[in-house]
Design a protein around this nucleic acid. Structure first.
Length: 803
RNA sequence: GCCGGGGUGGCGGAAUGGCAGACGCUACGGACUUAAAAUCCGUUGGGCUAAGCGCCCGUGAGGGUUCGAGUCCCUCCCCCGGCACCA
């Protein structure tokens, strides 16, 4: 028989599927739907590497199975195509990013198609397409209209040599990624999105969805909700006050000084009263120079300067306490000021120890001369006036009520989550559709004028001032105010890459709509996404941003579901054969094209699923690829020995039902490796038996089809089974028939395996015991001992306890 | 430091508290071949062994619960990923 020629057969079926529109999503909305989503890639110049197909194949398997189960399946693909690499390439080569992007997309698409994914290519979206980003801009305008977009001074990473603002990922070891020069912090007025307004709902609604637990935990952690109180301290002899956020208002009697962040505004408003303003300014300057990295890397040695001339009043006992400036207090969290309770906060303790400040114990139970005592579940209040003798929880409640009565404080919930910096000083992103008018302020451009396109430029370098390259295109920047008709200037910052990916899954439901981002009808049917798989690196930001946008769109009535993704799973990385992350510089990149060429797409897909635990990282192995190829070759040869038969043979019936059960279940629970192992085991059993019959062959091919679709379709056709394989129904199993009637079970004596016996499944313990006791090994093992107890678990184990 | 995920043969990995190592790879032996590749068959956790079965040890370390622990509980060690003084 002819050897299997994967190159010819795979091309053949890819062509047939495309011509017949086999995987086009149906418009029959009376059928149950299944929306499978994988993260759309950034189409880089390097093309696909073998890590990409792992999640694509996984959900392709599920999508193909669902179609055979009668679902109307939406399984789309697109391009997250704005981004830095194309822009950096443009700076070097002067080639327009759109040109490069299109070239890269064509390459990616071709590579994906060669792998036989069942994407509905008619629904492809591209974030850089004006017909797409028109709606990204539209959503931004809605956010702006609803007061969720605002401008604020925010620090950026600045390279003084390249004169360019850098994204966090472009900062390597505190240096600029391209020139190595030390990166500084610069303050720029930037667009912000008020995601914090949704913090509570983003936490609570995690209860509505089925995400892998670690993803939920990461999200909760990132949002970082904490309950406490805002407490106001007066500054002596001034009208100013300092408000602090604390989660431990119970320790207020232990507050022996205050610390404010170097950026705190009171340093400006009261600077005339500050005795050592020069020292303070010097400290501020030092803090400004420190990058995030430096702050993080240093071993947290506390630095700071006392603010001379200012004293604060502790509201519970009217004691005067000193005020300090230190960079361990962050302006971006809470109020930028803290009350320091060195007895019960480790950071405050370190600071107080460094500067010789008083430490007072207010919760007993620890030794505050050694370390701060931070336990809250044990301990009793001391040195705390009317709180003495209470436990921590009681004290918290009492002091919070008291502060409220006195008008000195209010209960407060704080979040670590910060608003989303939405500006980039870059060319290759969606233009922000606002103009600035001297008399009207920021004015949105009219919706009819969307999309606001990028102007053509010749030079993609940012300006000396750190503004985007767009700032230099004066005839684009200068415009008229849509509101008053006067002279106005366009915003020249563009949106971050996160923007386009925050709603792309909505567009897939109705990709060509030019009236709305997607129509209600389509959204209602398809949303939410039933299963979304992506990398763990996107579980915080991308997931949170897109959930935020979706909730906003829900609030304004565009979408009808509160949450975009019903289920979220994650895949592990594929490493190089040397167990290191694949990268060009390490020289361990495996190109999927070569694998497809030599072994075929079916082998590639199977290996990617068989390689190991889907959720974990795993090194690539060329030998492992060959193993999968061998298996498929053996499947191919089955056709030569196939026997007639329209029911499963007696010899394989139980195995067949077990295999259907195992494979069906494992495909659903990300255990593709064990599903394939079960198929391999079945094939081994076929070889034991000597032949496979037609009924078994059909079932086997259907089970294998989602993983290796080309070869199975070809065999289906060659064997004349009728129709196309992908049109068949997913096989059913009979639970009764999965259970073998006789089974060998282990026999233990005192928990140690001493032999095995074959029993019938419905044997009583009496019958089983007779068989056990007839076994010579068992007789020897219990000889001369007293049987104390016997445990029989049918189908599992027989354990005899002896003394 | 905190959070999350792990630690099982030479390797990737299996195992609702019930025969640890399924399945695949590698390696070794054999068949086929002038030969090699491919393919097929067999062996493959370590040790002991009278060669007959069998016995001992073994899932990062130590303790515990249980008739029975890779799996549950406690203490500790190591690896990977994420976060960075969050008041």
């Amino acid at each position: 028989m002819a050897r299997y020629n994967h190159q010819v057969v795979e091309k053949k079926w890819q062509k047939i599927w495309e011509e017949k529109g086999t995987f086009r999503t149906s418009s029959d909305y009376s059928r149950p739907k299944f929306y499978a989503l994988v993260e759309f890639p950034y189409p880089s110049g390097d093309g696909l590497h073998v890590g990409h197909p792992r999640p694509y194949t996984a959900l392709d398997v599920v999508a193909r199975k669902r179609r055979m189960e009668g679902y109307n399946v939406l399984f789309p693909m697109g391009w997250d195509a704005f981004g830095l690499p194309a822009e950096n390439y443009a700076i070097q080569t002067k080639i327009h990013p759109a040109v490069v992007t299109e070239r890269n997309i064509d390459r990616f698409r071709k590579q994906m198609q060669s792998l036989g994914f069942s994407f509905d290519w008619s629904r492809e979206v591209n974030t850089t397409d004006p017909n797409y980003f028109k709606w990204t801009q539209w959503i931004f305008l809605k956010l702006f209209e609803h007061g969720l977009a605002y401008k604020k001074e925010m620090p950026i990473n600045w390279c003084p040599r390249c004169k360019i603002g850098l994204a966090n990922e472009e900062v390597v070891d505190n240096g600029c990624e391209r020139c190595g020069h030390a990166v500084e912090t610069r303050v720029k007025n930037q667009w912000m999105l008020k995601i914090t307004a949704y913090a509570e709902r983003l936490i609570n609604d995690l209860d509505l969805v089925n995400y892998i637990e670690r993803a939920k935990i990461q999200q909760r952690h990132w949002i970082g909700r904490s309950e406490g109180a805002d407490v106001t301290f007066k500054i002596k002899d001034t009208q100013e006050t300092l408000t602090v956020f604390t989660t431990r208002p119970d320790t207020l009697f232990g507050a022996t000084y205050m610390v404010i962040s170097p950026e705190h505004p009171v340093l400006e408003t009261l600077k005339d009263r500050i005795g050592n303003i020069d020292a303070i300014s010097a400290y501020q300057e030092e803090a400004r120079k420190k990058s995030e990295f430096e702050r993080a890397e240093l071993n947290h040695e506390k630095t700071g300067v006392r603010v001379e001339g200012l004293m604060a009043i502790n509201p519970v006992n009217n004691k005067e306490i000193t005020i300090w400036v230190s960079d361990y207090v962050l302006m971006s969290y809470g109020t930028g000021a803290i009350m320091a309770v060195p007895g019960h906060d480790q950071r405050d303790w370190e600071f107080a120890t460094t500067f010789g400040l008083p430490i007072i114990e207010v919760v007993s139970g620890g030794d505050i001369s050694e370390a701060a005592y931070t336990q809250t579940d044990t301990g009793t209040m001391v040195n705390s006036g009317f709180l003495n003798g209470l436990d921590v929880d009681q004290a918290k409640a009492k002091i919070t009520a008291w502060l409220q009565e006195q008008g000195l404080g209010v209960p407060k919930v704080n979040y670590k989550l910060r608003d989303w910096v939405f500006s980039r000083q870059r060319y290759w992103g969606e233009p922000i559709p606002l103009v600035h008018c001297k008399s009207c302020g920021w004015v949105p451009i009219p919706e009819e004028e969307l999309p606001l396109r990028l102007p053509d430029v010749t030079n993609y370098e940012p300006t000396d001032t750190g503004e985007s390259p767009l700032a230099k295109i004066r005839d684009w920047v200068e415009t008229t105010c849509p509101s008053c008709g006067g002279a106005a200037e366009r915003e020249t910052d563009t949106m971050p890459q996160w923007a386009g990916s925050s709603w792309y899954f909505l567009r897939y439901t109705d990709p060509n709509n030019d009236q709305e981002l997607a129509s209600k009808k389509h959204l209602e049917y398809w949303m939410p996404v039933d299963w979304y798989n992506g990398g763990m690196e996107h579980t915080t930001l991308h997931l949170l941003y897109s959930r935020f946008w979706h909730k906003f769109l829900y609030d304004i009535g565009v979408v009808t579901e509160p949450e975009p993704y019903q289920k979220r799973t994650s895949h592990g990385m594929i490493l190089g054969e040397n167990n290191e992350k694949m990268s060009k510089s390490r020289g361990n990149v495996v190109n999927p094209d070569e694998v497809v060429e030599e072994y075929g797409a079916d082998t590639m897909r199977m290996y990617e699923m068989f390689i190991g635990d889907f959720e974990k990282s795993v090194p690539w192995s060329t030998d492992g690829v060959r193993g999968c190829k061998r298996f498929l070759d053996r499947v191919w040869k089955l056709k030569d020995t196939m026997q007639p038969g329209d029911t499963y043979s007696e010899a394989l019936e139980a195995k067949m039902h077990q295999t259907i059960k195992k494979v069906s279940h494992d495909y659903e629970s990300l255990k593709f490796n064990t599903a394939i192992a079960a198929l391999m085991t079945f094939l081994n059993d076929v070889h034991q038996v000597g032949s496979i019959n037609e009924a078994e062959m059909k079932t086997f091919l259907i089970l294998l089809n989602p993983v290796s679709p080309h070869l199975t379709e070809e065999l289906w056709e060659l064997l004349g089974f009728g129709g196309m394989l992908n049109e068949q129904s997913w096989p059913q199993y009979d639970e009764e028939k999965t259970i073998a009637q006789t089974i060998a079970i282990g026999v233990q004596v005192n928990g140690k395996l001493r032999g095995d016996v074959t029993v019938n499944l419905d044997d009583t313990q009496e019958v089983a015991r007779e068989k056990v006791m007839a076994n010579e090994n068992i007789q020897r093992a219990i000889e001369g001992k007293t049987v104390v107890k016997e445990i029989y678990v049918p189908g599992r184990i027989y354990n005899i306890v002896v003394k």
